[in-house]
Design a protein around this nucleic acid. Structure first.
Lengths: 100, 100
DNA sequence: CGAAAGTGGTTTGTATAACAAACCTGTTTG
DNA sequence: CAAACAGGTTTGTTATACAAACCACTTTCG
């Protein structure tokens, strides 16, 4: 029937998690986004957003830059090339699965 | 920017799990499939396949019919109307998310 | 000036989850 | 009779998300 649905089930769990999927989707479009913007867009609590950004960073998928806007902390997140690739691969996998 | 990514992150976790997503995809096409066929297609162990089918059944998304082919047990699974709807809704949600 | 609220987190506790592996019953086949 | 197959259930481990509490610093408001 199908080449291998087995392989397709093998989705990247880092991206697969809905919270991170939304974050990755935003970052794939937005280039760079600050912490509060992400929090408002995703509806996540600070703790969870922080947690998921750390996960993305640990996976090498996101770069977190902590700067200051004047004296207020400003945290910027963006996808790394690896992160963008992982995101695109994920989308391609899902697309393939849905073509069945 | 977007209407509400918050809502989109709200994917149906029952369907979202990759193992069940693959099962649901197969069932959405195949009408009905027996246990061993599903096991071979998904690459899951018996225990896990059983577990996920039970989850789908508990959610009201799958109907499990235990019959006999002669004297050999034959377990058939198919999606319920609610299951097909949930699957289609899931696909629509993902599609919407990916259109950003 | 003092309190509140905003920024950007870390830590902790809890509940859920998947998954592998072991175990089980019954049946057919060699 | 032994082995293998069909179709599971149960158990134990590990990872996970998520909420909520806590913390430090800064700006703003009354």
């Amino acid at each position: 029937m199908s080449p291998d649905l087995r392989g397709l089930a093998d989705l990247d769990r880092v991206i697969h998690e809905p919270a991170r999927l939304v974050i990755a989707t935003i970052l794939s479009v937005a280039e760079s986004a600050d912490f509060l913007f992400l929090q408002r867009e995703t509806g996540l609590t600070k703790g969870n957003l922080s947690f998921h950004l750390t996960k993305l960073e640990e996976a090498g998928y996101a770069a977190i830059e902590k700067t200051y806007k004047g004296k207020i902390p400003l945290t910027l997140a963006r996808l790394t090339p690896a992160g963008l690739k992982a995101y695109k691969d994920y989308r391609a996998s899902v697309k393939t699965l849905f073509e069945k």
